[in-house]
Design a binder for these strands. Structure first.
Length: 289
DNA sequence: TAAGCGTGGCC
DNA sequence: TGGCCAAGCTT
């Protein structure tokens, strides 16, 4: 069976143009790929790279991470954002140690069963670390398919059908399938970008349904991001930063000057609920177990 | 299903 | 300047 026309264009383009990213190095390892995917969830590549290197130097295996306290993971996560990911990565490491003899699983269902791993990350690990043939769908993929295949300016709401759309592009051969997954993401990241797509440099421009239709504006069905300034999320971030920087603190010493004391207390309660913070005799600290 | 969840750079 | 955006997951 001949390759899908889009795949036939993406493969040589990717071979020529792909960025030299750490997790693409041969032999980077499944643990490294897994950590990179956790960090890359909603966080830009440029901010991940230095944190990833430091993380893997400190914890070269899942067992090494699991042997440390979750507080250490949260501190090492620093300002990458969404610190629940640090906690979940620590939990996943313990699950890998306990259920999989310390080896990152290859099976998608086993990966999906790990804390903090969903449809994207499970298939990304299976495809990029182990070379298996699975559709890998991230926000870049969904935008590329929306435009090139469906002729829409923006993707619709995420759906399980996205996996079928991507599967339709994959060559039969496993190694080539992994390349097409990576190349589709790469195209979305560097050419078919959200705001100002560089269609004149696109390797699939003559095949693109959206470009051929004259780049029509289509209804934007994406969810808007809530305002951050003044939000509970901002308060949570400030509380956690105080505990990362200051160690254990009596509750009344956490953000004493925060403009909205009720919001601060609400943030502390939700952090306790998430397990990102623990309390002992009125003293707050990062989780020790 | 849709909301909640950090942080910072860019245009 | 400030909204948009970034290799998503959980509930």
């Amino acid at each position: 069976m001949p390759a899908h026309p889009l795949a036939a264009r993406l493969i040589p383009w990717y071979a020529r143009e792909k960025r030299d990213l750490p997790w693409r190095a041969p032999g980077f390892g499944a643990w490294g790929v897994l950590v990179s995917e956790f960090m890359l969830q909603q966080t830009p590549v440029a901010r991940v790279i230095p944190r990833l290197e430091a993380w893997l130097e400190r914890w070269p295996t899942p067992a090494a991470l699991a042997a440390d306290a979750p507080a250490e993971a949260v501190k090492q996560w620093a300002n990458l954002g969404y610190p629940r990911r640090a906690l979940w990565l620590h939990r996943a490491a313990a699950e890998i140690r306990d259920r999989h003899n310390g080896v990152v699983p290859r099976d998608v269902d086993a990966l999906l069963a790990l804390t903090g791993i969903g449809d994207y990350t499970a298939r990304a690990v299976a495809a990029f670390a182990y070379g298996d043939r699975h559709p890998v769908v991230d926000t870049n993929t969904r935008r590329v398919i929306a435009r090139a295949v469906h002729g829409r300016a923006q993707p619709a709401a995420p759906s399980r059908r996205d996996l079928d759309d991507m599967a339709a592009l994959l060559p039969v051969a496993e190694a080539e399938a992994a390349v097409v997954n990576a190349a589709t993401m790469e195209l979305g990241a560097v050419i078919c970008t959200a705001r100002s797509p560089r269609c004149d440099e696109c390797p699939v421009r003559d095949l693109c349904a959206w470009l051929n239709a004259g780049r029509p504006e289509t209804p934007d069905l994406r969810r808007r991001q809530a305002k951050y300034e003044g939000s509970d999320r901002q308060a949570r971030g400030a509380v956690l930063r105080a505990l990362r920087d200051g160690g254990a603190l009596p509750q009344e010493a956490v953000l004493p000057d925060w403009p909205d004391a009720l919001q601060r207390d609400r943030a502390i309660l939700s952090l306790l609920d998430d397990g990102l913070v623990e309390t002992e005799d009125g003293v707050l600290h990062l989780p020790r177990s």
